[in-house]
Design a protein around this nucleic acid. Structure first.
Length: 315
DNA sequence: CTTACGGCCTGGGTGC
DNA sequence: TGCACCCAGGCCGTAA
């Protein structure tokens, strides 16, 4: 399941390969996951790729302005070089400064989406539904078994609509911000961690792993957390995400990076998909329960359940 | 407004 | 061999 660390890993892989390359052709298989495939087919061929960045679990592939066939190569290359240095920050912030936004391909990998770079002659994996042929004989391919992913071309002025409602990046937020947005909420902390309008990029794996690490039960509510618990959760979340990025993500089912390689953080999971196994900290059996509509894995001894549930609407 | 919940999308894996 | 069913995560609609 691509969450923040997996998307970050894919972004870094693409960022290392794509800037400066020209897209020469776009081909689609099934298109039910694409917002406006005709617009993509019409506008992307001929464009040069700029920076590739992550925004929560979304990927943005920036493209140059339309550039009449083959001219201005040197200028485009120079612009690309400048873009390389500042990869992941401020896709929306940049937009609000009034500067013209580059067109960008927005991709969400859903559960089983993969973006890989391959030689155009390489065998095509099943369920590959989009091909972006490059000017060097390679192509970027989008493979998605379940097609829960999403793809859309964002043109000038569309980023705010697409991304503006997303919450804080958990790696950029400071402790005060984190505490403010969680501490004011009566919802279960598991639901808050998963809510992309609260924090952008956290999914089920990293929510469960962080809660275990912080020794916070997923059914606790945000406003019932003691300050030291919020602090532990903040630190656990960042440490978990950073370690997962270092290990190139968790490959629990289909996830691979831009080179097609699996990650290794699944080998470090302490609770996720470890139901019935021993807690690494205390030896109790890890349990699974549905919280916020999602499978939640936790240690019933290390992570103390809340006694009761305050009504959310009644008093 | 906030929160909770159910349904939907799809197809791989499982169990009979 | 086939087939019904469960499940994954994001998102949206609805209800309280």
């Amino acid at each position: 399941m691509p969450e923040l660390p997996e998307v970050e890993t894919v972004v870094r892989g693409l960022q290392a390969q794509l800037p400066g390359r020209r897209i020469v052709e776009v081909r689609f298989g099934k298109t039910d996951f694409v917002v406006n495939p005709a617009a993509i087919e019409q506008h992307l061929p001929g464009r040069r790729i700029g920076a590739v960045r992550r925004f929560g679990k979304f990927l943005l592939v920036e493209c140059s302005a339309a550039d009449p066939a083959g001219r201005r190569d040197a200028a485009a290359g120079a612009a690309t070089k400048r873009a390389v240095g500042r990869a992941t920050k401020g896709a929306v912030e940049q937009a609000t400064k009034g500067a013209k936004e580059n067109d960008a391909l927005l991709v969400h990998l859903g559960m089983t989406g993969q973006l890989t770079i391959a030689a155009a002659s390489a065998p095509v994996a099943p369920h590959t539904h989009a091909f972006f042929a490059l000017d060097d004989g390679r192509e970027v391919r989008y493979t998605d078994i379940r097609r829960f992913g999403r793809m859309e071309l964002l043109r000038n002025g569309e980023r705010e609509r697409a991304l503006g409602a997303l919450g804080l990046d958990p790696l950029e937020a400071n402790e005060e911000e984190f505490s403010r947005i969680l501490g004011s909420r009566n919802a279960r902390v598991k639901a808050l961690l998963l809510d992309q309008h609260v924090l952008r990029g956290v999914g089920n794996i990293y929510a469960d792993e962080s809660l275990w690490r912080a020794r916070v039960h997923p059914m606790r509510t945000g406003d019932a957390l003691r300050p030291e618990e919020v602090r532990r959760l903040y630190r656990a979340l960042q440490a978990t995400l950073r370690e997962a990025i270092r290990l190139r993500g968790s490959s629990v089912s289909d996830y691979v990076d831009a080179e097609g390689a699996r990650g290794e953080f699944q080998l470090r999971h302490c609770v996720y998909q470890r139901e019935g196994k021993k807690c690494f900290r205390c030896g109790a059996k890890i349990r699974r329960a549905i919280v916020a509509g999602r499978s939640s894995h936790f240690c019933p001894r290390c992570q103390k359940a809340p006694r009761k549930r305050h009504g959310s609407s009644k008093k």
